[in-house]
């Protein structure tokens, strides 16, 4: 059975790195894996999504509405943007972190500060963590993605099936291995 994961965040938050680690992990677990990124204009502070699909045999790298088993969101309102993609019974793991877009900053658009309360009320499998804050406290807010990875691995019960710490160490910049391993632990134990 093919599983579909949607990662969503804001350009520059590191969604692509965690996608790379996840797909390498699924491949190591013996699954067929496909991952679809969108590059280009969206990197300039726009909303960015990555899709990962794994299973015995995967055809399409991308999917449509109500087809995601899991959404991993790096930003509060982006979880809301991605919600129509979630299957009934699916799981949302989201950071509590807010990034105000330029239309919000200039007052042309408003920000749903209570988004997560609403999300929790309708999606039974809603998991909210403070990944950005934890990473910041650790000394590098850019490790937010690895905190989320730790939480994802724990939630999905994948820790036995691949050496995720090794995968983290292989995929992050060499100088940041230690702090990212700490970030992983932190997310895992949240």
């Amino acid at each position: 059975m093919t599983k579909s994961i949607l990662l969503i965040g804001v350009g520059g938050q590191g969604t692509i790195l965690i996608s790379r680690i996840l797909s390498a992990g699924f491949a190591r677990m013996g699954y067929d894996v496909k991952m679809s990124e969108i590059h280009g204009m969206s990197q300039r502070g726009g909303s960015v999504t990555t899709m990962i699909r794994y299973g015995d045999e995967v055809s399409s790298p991308n999917f449509g509405e109500a087809e995601a088993d899991i959404i991993i969101s790096f930003e509060k309102s982006e979880a809301i943007r991605a919600l129509p993609q979630l299957k009934k019974g699916g799981t949302v793991i989201t950071d509590d972190y807010e990034i105000l877009s330029v239309p919000v900053l200039t007052g042309a658009s408003s920000y749903p500060h209570d988004a997560l309360e609403q999300l929790r009320a309708v999606v039974p499998n809603t998991i909210i963590i403070e990944a950005f804050k934890a990473a910041e406290k650790l000394g590098n807010s850019r490790c937010q993605n690895i905190v989320l990875l730790g939480k994802f691995v724990k939630t999905m019960g994948l820790d036995e099936k691949a050496d995720w710490k090794e995968l983290v160490a292989e995929n992050v910049p060499p100088r940041t291995v230690d702090i990212n391993l700490k970030a992983y632990e932190l997310g895992y134990n949240m």
Partner: peptide
């Protein structure tokens, strides 16, 4: 498409800037 979830809140526009 299959069933999904719906909340009242909408995500703010986030165009590339």
């Amino acid at each position: 498409p299959g069933e999904s979830y719906h909340v009242e809140a909408t995500a703010p526009a986030r165009p590339p800037t």
